[in-house]
Simulated scan of single mutants.
Amino acid sequence: MLTRHLSAAARPADSSDIDGTWFDLVDGDAAERARAEAASGVRLPGRERLAGIELSNRVGIVDDVLRLGIPYFSPDDAAPPAPVGFVLTPRFLVSLRFAASPAFELAAERVRAAAPGTSTDAFVVLVQSIVADAADRMEAVAAEVGALSTRIFGGERRDTGLLRATLAEIGRVEARLARLRLSTTGLLRILLALREAPPAWVGQPALARLHAAQKDLEVLGEFDSQLTDKLQFLLDAVLGFINIDQNDVIKILTVASVVSIPPVILAGIWGMNFDHMPELHLPHAYPLALAAIVSSMVLPLAWFKRRGWM
């Protein structure tokens, strides 16, 4: 789908020769790509080139045409990462993506309302919208991490089923955070490269706003590191509780095996078929044998309890 966004300051015309026009191509077919190329006057890169992780595929400028790419961009918390590309000229901005994204929808609203005068202004608004969306999503992840911490260390009973569910939840949250990290890291790298060697037609005000967005991304990177460390701590805590539960089971089995040894020995001795066994001829030999067997079980249990092993 090809969408053309005009600023509020642009003239209401059907022609494409308006400075500051933004063409947004979402999973476009060959015909839509051809229309975007004809309107902007530039050749658009394919998905395979945008997905390349080498820096030469992410940033390049030829004949006043700036091509930027993010190989792994997470449009939302559900969709898998896909490449995103930007083609920026002094007059037009073309974005290439392959899934719907709330960040681009927010940018479209801001472009229509903020009246950017140039294509660079539209690109800055788009970058700022992506940063704002990433910040909101990272705040949501932080809230989920806090809820996980409360669930793990709260007062509720930590049974095996709860621990397993929590372990799966930690994996899901970490996957969301990893996809978001790929997006912010990719955007940060193209901003760093753009600020190191900006085209002559990119003004200082736009570079200053991009520098502010870069600082925001660096802060998000630090916040991401904190959340990653917190998730690792929660993962270690859950595995520790599971290990404690397993140790409790082993301890119970060990106590049961130790307690069962004396009665088995006594029953084995008195169950032997010898002709001369003095105990067999004692008065009340049977109840005495039962009492001895029970005592051989109770005494070890009492000893374990006194030592605090149970």
Rank of each mutant, 00 (worst) to 15 (best):
K230Y: 00
I252Q: 14
T150M: 09
Y72A: 15
D77W: 03
A289T: 00
R49V: 06
R181N: 13
S225K: 09
F233E: 00
D63Y: 05
L50M: 10
V294S: 07
A132E: 08
R33T: 10
S295N: 04
I61N: 08
L25I: 04
G155D: 12
A132P: 00
T3C: 07
V249M: 06
L280Y: 06
R164K: 09
A8Y: 03
D19H: 14
D14T: 14
F98W: 13
D216S: 08
L194D: 15
A99I: 05
E32P: 02
V298L: 15
V87P: 02
A165G: 13
R158L: 15
L217W: 01
A302Q: 12
E174P: 03
F86V: 09
P45Q: 10
R97Y: 05
W303K: 12
R306E: 08
A115W: 01
L231G: 00
W270I: 11
F98D: 11
L2N: 01
I53S: 06
V111E: 00
E196H: 14
H276R: 06
L88P: 02
W22G: 00
I130F: 01
K215M: 09
V26F: 08
A168W: 04
A212S: 11
E37Q: 14
L188V: 13
I265C: 15
G60Q: 08
A34H: 12
R209Q: 11
L66I: 06
Q214H: 07
T184R: 11
L192Q: 15
G271E: 07
V249L: 07
V26I: 14
V87M: 08
P287E: 01
L207G: 02
L290T: 00
E109K: 05
P283F: 03
R112H: 04
F73H: 11
V127Q: 01
A78H: 04
E144K: 02
M1Y: 10
R4Y: 11
E144H: 03
S74M: 04
R151I: 01
A9D: 14
G240M: 02
A143R: 08
H5K: 07
V219W: 06
R189S: 15
A212V: 10
L301K: 11
L231N: 02
D224T: 15
S257V: 13
L280A: 09
M310N: 06
